[in-house]
Design a protein around this nucleic acid. Structure first.
Ligand SMILES: [Zn+2]
Ligand SMILES: [Zn+2]
Ligand SMILES: [Zn+2]
Ligand SMILES: [Zn+2]
Lengths: 126, 126
DNA sequence: TACAATAATGATACAGAGTCTCAAAAACGA
DNA sequence: TCGTTTTTGAGACTCTGTATCATTATTGTA
């Protein structure tokens, strides 16, 4: 049960469309470029609220920047340090993670499983 | 088998000492404060190289900043969105993660399992 | 409809974290 | 020792993201 404001403003809707259509992970700046004439602050506001409502997912990468994705199936991520590609890995640890955290007394809102290394393509190419 | 420069400079050593002694997760700026008279660039350089050599671990948080820790046992992290505390959770997914990623053809260098939510203390206090 | 209150938006100044450049200092090697 | 390479520090700079605030759009109501 999300507790934030549930309303979806016109701009939130456009951002959601952009992410849902792109099928990849986009940075805030990339989304900004897609939405011509829209102010930077507005895009960041929309992204925050969509995250709060659980409609999109923010991923904080090693590089310092965040990328956003439309929420579909739960999955993990793999980031290649050679080419920078970000791969969706279809597996789920959420339930077992939640168990462990619950034992510690914490309540989980979001889990984030990311691995870093060298992807198949880059390894082949070397 | 790390491939970076293996040498440890005097400053890298001081940074390593600082992290090893503190037993908590420190930001680059906090480390900078501990090491009076040391240049900002030097600290960031040292942190990068220590990460490459696998002696310390960088954690990229939702907040946009990174924290560093001395590498001890593998563990997961839990970040409380209320109080900001970062908890070490003693459990390990590395081996099963590695299996899955390997099936996808990628080779893992580092895994990062972090959950966000509300910690025990904050939940009690409400 | 007309009007007041509230919410959303955009321009822009601002802040924080981290990087780049370059010259000085230190370490190294012959 | 003396020249070469590495490390370091100061500070300018970049890049994400935030805060402020006036303008515009929406909403609710008389
Ligand atoms: Zn790659
Ligand atoms: Zn994804
Ligand atoms: Zn807490
Ligand atoms: Zn830790």
């Amino acid at each position: 049960m999300p507790r934030g404001r549930e309303k979806i403003t016109p701009l939130m809707h456009r951002v959601l469309q952009t992410l849902s259509a792109s099928r990849v992970h986009l940075t805030a700046e990339e989304i900004l470029e897609c939405l011509e004439g829209v102010g930077r602050a507005t895009v960041y506001r929309a992204l925050d609220r969509l995250c709060e409502q659980g409609l999109i997912n923010r991923l904080s990468l090693e590089s310092g920047t965040s990328v956003y994705e439309y929420v579909r199936e739960p999955h993990m991520h793999f980031v290649c340090r050679e080419c920078g590609n970000l791969y969706d890995i279809p597996a789920e640890f959420a339930s077992s993670l939640e168990q462990i955290m619950t034992k510690c007394g914490h309540s989980i809102v979001k889990t984030d499983v990311t691995a870093y290394g060298v992807c198949k393509n880059c390894r082949m190419a070397e």
